[in-house]
Simulated assay, not measured.
Amino acid sequence: MTDITASPSAWRDFLTQQGAQFDDQGQDVLGFGTATPQSLESFVAPLTDLGLIAATGEEAAAFLHGQLTNDVQHLTADAARLAGYCSPKGRLLATLLMWRDEAGIFLQLPRALQPAIQKRLQMFILRAKAKLADVSAERAVLGLVGPATANALAEWFPVLPAAPYDKLDNSHGTLIRLADAAGSPRYQWIAAVDTLSTAWPKLVQHLKPTATLAWRLSDIRAGVPGILAATQEQFVPQMINFELIGGVNFKKGCYPGQEIVARSQYLGKLKRRTLLATIASAGARAGDEVFAAADPGQPCGMVVNAEPLDQDHALALVEMKLAAADDTVHLGAAGGPALHFHDLPYELADPQ
């Protein structure tokens, strides 16, 4: 029997055989035929845009604990956590999902950022007994969303993680529950390529296979931001609500930018936050500026994440001055496409 894990392109080759169409870079799955990813209730999406770093060695946890915004030392095997990696100025270089198992600690982030972030982390290992490795090709990832996921996963995970960021490991891989989106549960199944390839035909009996962007839309609906190349070093964690969704531990001690992040938390009321919005333009992108009609000469904020909903609209997370939220806000210029704001699935609590 051929070992499907032998080639780094094995997962992509398998998905192509199942009807997946990829973008020009070979990174995103654009869809499986005629499915409309924006409107599916229950779906499965290959998360081929994500990279994975494995940290191993007896001092790996201590090393990462001193680099990231969240507690790594006390990360247990039954949980995953969000974390940020900041510059010395407290600005986010990356947002990560992290977990651990008997093999080590894993950091998941956009594949486009993974090589540079890994290289930067590697610079600071120095004498620490820790090693970093790119294991993106060794473990494939599926995103599963909706009420049909319990039946879809029952053969491999009879009991699902009960709450967001709970994690299960067994011989079939790792299953992490993520923050719900619009009331629907969301999971990531991370496993060897052959495991997910074998499971795929049964999964798609319950869940509609669809584009990678469907998962990113679900992240936006859940109010979970992600730093991309266009937004690196633009935000301190609180500006994208990162402490509200469990991405920052204020008791863990030092990491790059920690003093600035702490100062933002405890000195005065935060004047900038990230809001959920529909934008009257399918072309909205991360890094685009937004402008309030009352002050058209300077931007009041920036798009953190955006994905198209249809030919004329995008759903977005937009970092901006809270004072401008009651004004008319537009993309790109004061006369640009309008933003319509929605309630986030969590409260924008004061930091005090």
Rank of each mutant, 00 (worst) to 15 (best):
T231Q: 09
G283P: 03
L244V: 08
L213I: 15
G257E: 08
G257I: 09
T231A: 08
A214P: 12
T198A: 08
V248H: 04
A192D: 12
I245F: 07
M239T: 12
W215E: 01
L217F: 12
K251R: 14
R263H: 02
T195E: 11
L217S: 15
G226V: 12
G246C: 10
P209R: 01
V261W: 00
V193E: 05
I279Q: 02
A211S: 14
A199E: 06
Q238E: 10
T274G: 08
G246P: 04
G223T: 02
A282G: 08
H206I: 07
E243V: 03
P201M: 10
D219G: 15
P201W: 11
A277P: 09
K208M: 15
A222L: 08
E259I: 02
S197R: 05
A284F: 05
A277Q: 09
L244S: 07
W215M: 02
D219S: 14
G223E: 00
E259N: 13
W215Y: 06
A211W: 05
T195M: 07
G253K: 09
A199C: 02
R285E: 00
I220L: 12
L244D: 02
T195Q: 14
A282W: 06
A262R: 00
L213G: 03
E259Y: 11
A280C: 02
V236M: 10
R272E: 13
I227L: 07
L207S: 03
T195W: 04
S281Y: 08
K208F: 02
A282C: 01
I227H: 12
L213H: 11
A262V: 06
I227Y: 14
A282H: 05
L217N: 13
T195P: 06
P209L: 05
Q234Y: 01
D194G: 00
A282F: 06
R216E: 13
Q258W: 04
I245P: 09
T274C: 15
W200Q: 02
S197N: 09
D194V: 00
Q238P: 04
G247H: 10
I240P: 09
I220W: 08
F242M: 07
F235I: 03
A284R: 07
E259R: 12
Y255W: 03
R272D: 08
N241Q: 03
R273T: 03
Q265R: 12
S218E: 15
V248D: 06
T274K: 06
K251C: 10
K269M: 05
L270Q: 13
I240Q: 11
G253R: 07
S281K: 08
L276A: 06
S218Y: 13
G246F: 02
L275V: 04
N249M: 05
P256W: 08
D194Q: 11
G223R: 01
S218Q: 15
R216N: 10
L244Q: 08
A192F: 01
L217H: 15
Y266I: 00
G253T: 11
A284Q: 04
F242V: 01
K252T: 15
L244N: 04
K251Q: 11
I279F: 03
T195A: 13
I227W: 11
Q205H: 13
I260R: 11
N241C: 06
Q238D: 07
L217I: 15
L267E: 07
M239A: 14
T278R: 14
A192L: 11
L275Y: 15
L217V: 05
V224Y: 04
T231R: 10
A192H: 00
E233W: 03
R285P: 01
P225Y: 03
L244E: 09
L196N: 02
L244F: 05
T210L: 10
W215T: 04
G247P: 03
D219L: 14
Y266R: 04
R285H: 08
